[in-house]
């Protein structure tokens, strides 16, 4: 993966986090926010382009940003997204993400797994009440799954601009 592509993906997550938090501030009702950083990790990991170390490094930076914006302990989402990237890369040859439905199902399952991992690692923060935090997992997974096809389409667009040859993209 080129440095340019990595930078664009990191900037995309940065903008996504800003937009998500700002729009949430305007809405009169409370809603679960999609896991923007996880979507980019899934996109990169399932796409399979680039080496594992570069992908993990990008996932760690995305996790760092997610931690910073969410106010979570530093390293928490960096670790979960790093693990997510490893798993996404491992599954990339077995999963088909050709249609929006595929994308939604994969995002749903991945976000649920990510949420469970997040709660498990940070269970000490929930002071013995981690089970109630688990209630957040389904709604966050659904919110992320609904946004996933649009996010993937946007990221593919960005990728095409960076690399005009469509044969270079495995997920067309």
């Amino acid at each position: 993966m080129s440095a340019q592509r990595a930078t664009v993906m990191i900037l995309a997550v940065y903008v996504g986090l800003i937009v998500t938090s700002s729009l949430q501030a305007l809405l009169p009702w409370r809603m679960s926010t999609p896991e923007v950083a996880l979507l980019v990790v899934l996109y990169l990991g399932l796409g399979g382009r680039g080496t594992a170390p570069t992908h993990i490094a990008v996932a760690l930076v995305l996790g760092y940003l997610a931690d910073l914006f969410a106010g979570s302990p530093k390293g928490l989402q960096a670790l979960t997204l790093g693990v997510g990237m490893v798993l996404a890369r491992a599954a990339s040859s077995r999963l088909d993400v050709a249609t929006p439905w595929h994308t939604m199902v994969i995002a749903l399952v991945a976000t649920a797994a990510h949420g469970l991992l997040l709660v498990a690692i940070s269970s000490s923060l929930y002071q013995g009440d981690a089970t109630s935090a688990l209630g957040l997992v389904p709604t966050t997974a659904v919110a992320t799954a609904l946004v996933a096809p649009f996010a993937f389409a946007l990221l593919r667009r960005l990728d095409r601009r960076l690399q005009p040859d469509p044969r270079a993209l495995r997920m067309s």
Partner: peptide
């Protein structure tokens, strides 16, 4: 207030 939680978990 200028921004609200970016993660439902925090």
């Amino acid at each position: 207030v200028i921004a609200v939680e970016t993660s439902a978990f925090f």
